[in-house]
């Protein structure tokens, strides 16, 4: 039973210029109740790895550099 992947537009976006994940910050990853964010080690920024968002906003509220923006997922907008 082979698998295929369906691309999807994710609701949480990160401003790479403002993100300080390269300095060791993981606040947004830590506070997400659904654990959907991760750090891209190569780029040194956070990103949304799984499209499983409750649009609850701790990631945006707790980011020390205001790098995170939560949009309403497209299906709900």
């Amino acid at each position: 039973m082979p698998l295929a992947y369906t691309p999807t537009n994710v609701p949480v976006t990160i401003n790479a210029d403002a993100c300080i994940a390269d300095k060791g910050c993981t606040v947004c990853v830590d506070v997400c109740p659904l654990d959907v964010l991760a750090i891209d080690m190569a780029k040194g920024t956070a990103y949304m790895k799984y499209d499983e968002c409750w649009y609850c906003m701790p990631c945006e509220a707790d980011c020390p550099t205001n790098a995170v923006t939560v949009s309403i997922p497209y299906l709900l907008r």
Binding site: P33, L34, E52, C53, W54, Y55, C56, P73, L75, L76
Partner: peptide
């Protein structure tokens, strides 16, 4: 009704 698995009333966790 949106069909979004995590768009629930409750925190979906």
């Amino acid at each position: 009704s949106s069909g979004y698995l995590f768009g629930t009333y409750e925190n979906p966790t």
